[in-house]
Design a protein around this nucleic acid. Structure first.
Length: 297
DNA sequence: GTCCAGGCTTTCC
DNA sequence: GGAAAGCCTGGA
């Protein structure tokens, strides 16, 4: 890797770390549990550990952690084994991506926990990011376990599929603000609890095969399954098409009202194995620009 | 078999 | 009042 690791005072510091910008990573819509602190750092919980991340000049500082957890948990979570300079160089051959990467140069794709991501993206359908975050927080507080307090804020683990399989649908719907998605959450959790679909088996499947399997869950369609594959199962060629990506793809590459399947085919052909990374740069770019609002018919 | 319209909870702008 | 990281159902 292109950086040096220093450990001190319950912190891990990566010196001269490139391609790592907390704002880009945590606000490109892939993760919903990162809380921004007053000093611009971000705090979240993953695998029963609370961590705080901050960029300080040329370095990135990880607080409330140690060498062992960093190597065993966070190295993989933050995708630190991957060469993002190479990915950006390859994608920059396309002029649109070259511009998009200027906006979100510090984006990385996190490796998150499958069950939490499945439920999070079921909630994301026809929803807004602030509200998605709120629902996930409420669910964790009610059904997860208290783990730690950091900077005055309590952190709770995301509940297991066994817990959510037995949750009350009306309680989720009303008190946790997920609305009609509540039954999808409970029924998906039940399918996993009953062993109808083995999540671990998806790691070794192709993207297309994994997508077919995930779409068996209620509330999971083409877009949500693509997100799950990209953000939890390491499928780099998955290309989730939400309203923003649809707009920006039509704006720069295709005509308006292109069918989702055709956008998908185009993206896979154009970006190939890097489609997932391209999607993240494009999504961030589209939202920064507000593409589509001005472009709308 | 594919395609498409309409409905869905609630919050945010 | 419209839109929001869409999906499900029913009918053509």
């Amino acid at each position: 890797m292109n950086y040096k690791i220093i450990e001190k005072d319950n912190k891990i510091i990566l010196k001269d770390m490139k391609n790592f910008e907390p704002k880009h990573i945590f606000e490109c819509g892939q993760a919903f549990r990162w809380h921004v602190e007053e000093d611009g750092s971000y705090t979240a919980i993953h695998k029963g550990k609370v961590i705080n991340v901050k960029r300080e000049g040329r370095d990135v500082v990880f607080s409330n952690t140690n060498r062992s957890d960093f190597e065993n948990i966070w190295f993989n979570y933050f995708d630190l084994g991957r060469d993002y300079s190479k990915i950006k160089e390859e994608l920059s051959k396309d002029s649109v991506l070259k511009e998009a990467i200027k906006f979100g140069q510090g984006i990385r794709i996190l490796n998150q926990e499958p069950f939490e991501i499945i439920i999070s993206f079921i909630i994301s359908a026809n929803n807004q990011i602030p509200r998605i975050k709120k629902s996930i927080e409420l669910i964790s507080r009610s059904y997860g376990e208290y783990i730690d307090t950091y900077n005055g804020r309590k952190y709770f683990s995301f509940p297991t599929h066994d817990i959510l399989a037995d949750a009350d649908i009306e309680d989720l719907e009303k008190n946790h603000k997920v609305g009609y998605r509540a039954k999808y959450i409970v029924n998906t959790s039940k399918m996993i609890k009953q062993g109808k679909i083995d999540l671990d088996s998806i790691y070794s499947l192709s993207t297309a095969e994994g997508q077919e399997k995930l779409k068996k869950f209620p509330g999971v369609g083409p877009k949500v399954s693509s997100c799950i594959l990209l953000f939890a199962f390491n499928k780099d060629n998955a290309f989730p098409i939400d309203i923003w990506v649809k707009r920006i793809m039509e704006y720069f590459y295709l005509e308006e009202d292109t069918k989702l399947k055709d956008i998908s085919k185009f993206a896979n052909k154009k970006f190939g194995d890097l489609a997932g990374f391209a999607q993240q740069y494009l999504f961030y770019y589209a939202r920064e620009l507000g593409v589509g609002k001005k472009n709308k018919r």
